[in-house]
Amino acid sequence: MNVVSGDVAVIVPTLRRPESLRRALLSLFAQGRVADRVREIVVVDNDPLGSAAATVSDLSADSPWPLLYRHAPRPGVATARNTGLQATDAPLIAFLDDDEAAEPHWLHALLDALENCGADVVFGPIRGQAPDAADWIRPYLEAFFGRSGPVHSGLIDHPYGCGNSLMLRRTALPGPAPFDTASDQTGGEDDALFAALAARGGRFGWAAEAWADEFAPAHRATLAYALARAFAYGQGPSQTAAARRDWPAVGRWMLIGAAQTLAWSCAAATYLLIRSPRRAIAMDRTARGLGKLFWMKGLEPQFYGTRELARLNASTPA
């Protein structure tokens, strides 16, 4: 790969999380060994009120690289990501979510892995943090919001999510709006993107040293939220097969889901009776199995966009 000075843009989508956004940006300002690689940091404000503008303005003088602000007033995770891409022409795109904080050599580790393994996209590990969760469920939630992978960097056979990733724009992010805005409210925009990349022969990589922390806010650090997300994750394989009109694969995933649901629901009932902390994992696996069975459009839980904005509005004092 030809290295061009200032060839990386870091995109940070955000929705009304000023303190979390500040933490994420300060972690980016502290990145080492990449001074000549970063072209700009792009903050995409997905709040119709433009509430992140003040945070970006306050921190702009502290940024070692241009800190750009873009307003995407239509709430939606895919819309926010597309808006960030339209703000930069950098050939390499890194994504860091606004609830994440990167370690000082995060970006260097992503770049090193991308260049050494020849992947189109590389992902880094995530430590989940759920400080507000109840003691019995905290280990499950921190694993749920975290991400683990191989001990060493290299090619992997499946993708992860966009948060904590680096992409070769030319191959992984084709066109002006590569994220499907039909996923604005439900998420999964990265699943569709990476499924299409895999179909084109794209390759995925793992950057074992590119650590970031993900801080689950209090309203997400609950069993109910995690199970809804687990159900949505379970829907992914069936929905991907249905989008390809591969009905035998849909049937296969539904059979797998039925088996998972039966086995894990029995385990969950047992763990509930004895009040074992393992009940959270068993309920998670049950939810994923149900998702494979009930994958149909209209049954997707909504976590982003207008749903998240409505929750934020409801929690704001009048």
Rank of each mutant, 00 (worst) to 15 (best):
P48M: 07
P277E: 02
P139I: 06
E209K: 12
S183D: 14
A267Q: 05
W206M: 10
G149V: 02
A287G: 03
A258G: 14
R22F: 07
E100L: 15
A287L: 00
T316F: 10
Q31G: 04
L111I: 03
C162L: 14
A199E: 13
V44Y: 04
P277T: 01
L96G: 12
G118C: 04
V12R: 06
V151L: 15
G161P: 00
T286G: 06
T316W: 11
A198R: 14
M296E: 05
W136C: 13
G205R: 03
L173V: 07
D89C: 13
R200L: 12
V10K: 07
P150L: 00
L173H: 04
A78K: 01
D89W: 08
C266M: 12
A258I: 15
T171R: 12
T88L: 00
A182L: 11
E103M: 12
W106K: 02
Q129I: 15
G188F: 06
A212W: 05
H105Y: 14
D98P: 02
A182P: 00
D62L: 15
A101M: 12
G32E: 15
A196M: 00
V3Q: 14
V121P: 07
P237C: 08
W247C: 09
A35G: 05
L28Q: 05
G154P: 00
P159C: 04
R278Q: 08
S148C: 11
A226E: 00
F215K: 06
L141D: 00
R278I: 02
T55A: 08
A249T: 14
V38S: 09
I41E: 05
T79S: 11
V38Y: 02
L173W: 00
C117F: 01
D246G: 03
E100I: 12
R311A: 11
Q31I: 07
E19V: 15
F194W: 15
E214F: 14
L114E: 02
G205D: 01
A249K: 08
F123C: 08
M283G: 10
A210N: 07
T240I: 14
R200C: 10
A242L: 12
T88G: 08
G298P: 03
R81V: 07
A232V: 03
E308Q: 15
D246C: 05
A242F: 12
F144M: 03
L68R: 14
W211Y: 05
V43Q: 07
G32K: 13
